[in-house]
Design a protein around this nucleic acid. Sequence first.
DNA 1: GCCAACGTTGGC
DNA 2: GCCAACGTTGGC
Length: 140
Amino acid sequence: MNQTKYWIVKSEPDVFGYEQLVKDGTARWDGVRNYQARNNLRAMQVGDLCLFYHSNIGLEVVGIARVQREHYPDPTAEKGDWSCVDLEPFKAFNRPVPLPEIKNHPDLQNIALVRNGRLSVMPLSFDEFSILLSMGATHL
DNA sequence: GCCAACGTTGGC
DNA sequence: GCCAACGTTGGC
């Protein structure tokens, strides 16, 4: 049996926000053109949980998505070896967690959101996931 | 709108 | 294989 893994995915809410994911019920997470992010997508398994972060506008974690379908070739890639997954909404945060709070939390200093602001798909430890969940006043 | 950080590209 | 130039991302 595979252990659930935890991730953060970023999206600009004016392009595709968490509310849109809830409305649509599913989303193909395509368009990733960064090798590190792609490799993270490929490591995702069905049932893994992804915190949903709004970049550019909002700058906060707003909810949780769940991996619905594991990686497959990104149909939007005209060339190159790129992958995408399908996500579905899992649970909205009761309280969005703003970036400055994440940056100020002593136990969240190692996550890529703080260390490398540009990575769009990044792994989280269970502890980090749990901390963010409680900051969001949310439980599974 | 600016700029820092990062990744990619291409000349040598 | 190095590194300068360039493009993109994303916080501020």
